[in-house]
């Protein structure tokens, strides 16, 4: 199996996997990260999102071989070295923006990606940015509030 040198959450990781293995499986299975979740394997629900060079993308169908030198940040990587939460993570806790929380990873990642681009999004822009992300519990309105709160706290 070929070796891949990946930049994950600020450090370099070498993984030994088949080239077609989607990034999600490398993150969860090899690197034992919990943030990105398997939801559909079809890039339809956003549960598996990570930041690749600062932009939210799904990781469930993206082959590890295609990553090159890209920087990958997962939900774990948003917490700073002192354990302090990212403003978006903090806002999700404050707004209690979850029920089961399975989609939360993708929601937080998509929100961070949005705020990187647009620090002051309006409600329509927030909804657009999260269009890929499915939530079945119906926590959407709390998620929107959390992103507004995070934007205000940045």
């Amino acid at each position: 199996m070929p070796k891949y040198r990946l930049h994950i959450n600020g450090s370099e990781k070498v993984v030994d996997v088949e080239p077609d293995t989607p990034l999600l499986y490398v993150l969860r299975d090899q690197l034992e990260l919990n943030g990105p979740k398997f939801g559909c394997g079809l890039s339809q629900c956003g549960s598996c999102m990570v930041l690749v060079d600062g932009v939210a993308v799904t990781s469930c169908i993206r082959p590890v071989a295609s990553l090159g030198n890209s920087r990958v940040i997962t939900l774990e990587g948003l917490v700073n070295e002192n354990g302090k939460l990212h403003p978006v993570q903090e806002a999700f806790v404050k707004e209690q923006a979850a029920q089961c929380g399975y989609c939360l990873n993708g929601m937080v990642i998509a929100a961070v990606s949005l705020l990187n681009e647009n620090p002051n999004p309006n409600e329509a822009e927030i909804k657009d940015a999260l269009q890929v992300n499915l939530c079945r519990c119906g926590a959407h309105t709390r998620i929107i509030s959390a992103i507004k709160r995070a934007a205000g706290n940045q």
Binding site: R28, N34, V79, L85, V93, G101, Y102
Partner: peptide
């Protein structure tokens, strides 16, 4: 009263069955 598990969720702690890993676990 805020739930305690939402902070665990945002920190990506082991919370869900999908996150359980045992030594030598097979798929």
């Amino acid at each position: 009263i805020p739930r305690k598990d939402i902070e665990k969720m945002v920190r990506a702690e082991e919370l869900y069955i999908q996150d359980l890993r045992f030594p030598g676990m097979l798929h």
